[in-house]
């Protein structure tokens, strides 16, 4: 997640299975915790924590996936480009 953001990604969206339905039992719950960790870390270094997001989705639910993707897109557009990218381009 951090690597992607460091390289200039405007947002990172992690999608896991529905809670309680993880093939690895708690993998999706741990992933959510990781995302929350990253959000806090981003906030504390002056970037927007909202650039990292966690969603849960069933593999057959394409319309919901599309809705989440749009939501993420809107959120990121609202935040504007990742400052890391600007720095890279300027350099």
């Amino acid at each position: 997640m951090l690597r992607a953001l460091e390289k200039g990604a405007d947002g990172v969206c992690i999608i896991g299975c529905m809670e309680g339905e993880c093939q690895f039992k708690t993998g999706n719950l741990r992933a959510r915790k990781r995302v929350e960790q990253v959000q806090r870390l981003l906030n504390s270094i002056g970037l927007d924590g909202e650039r990292a997001q966690m969603y849960n989705l069933s593999s057959s639910d394409a319309p919901l996936f599309a809705r989440y993707a749009e939501e993420m897109d809107e959120r990121i557009r609202g935040l504007g480009p990742n400052p890391m990218k600007k720095k890279k381009n300027a350099a």
Partner: peptide
Amino acid sequence: AGMLASALRMYYANQGIE
């Protein structure tokens, strides 16, 4: 270590320290 290093790199970049 990876997370902290990444966070510090982004911090410096965000401060304009190239």
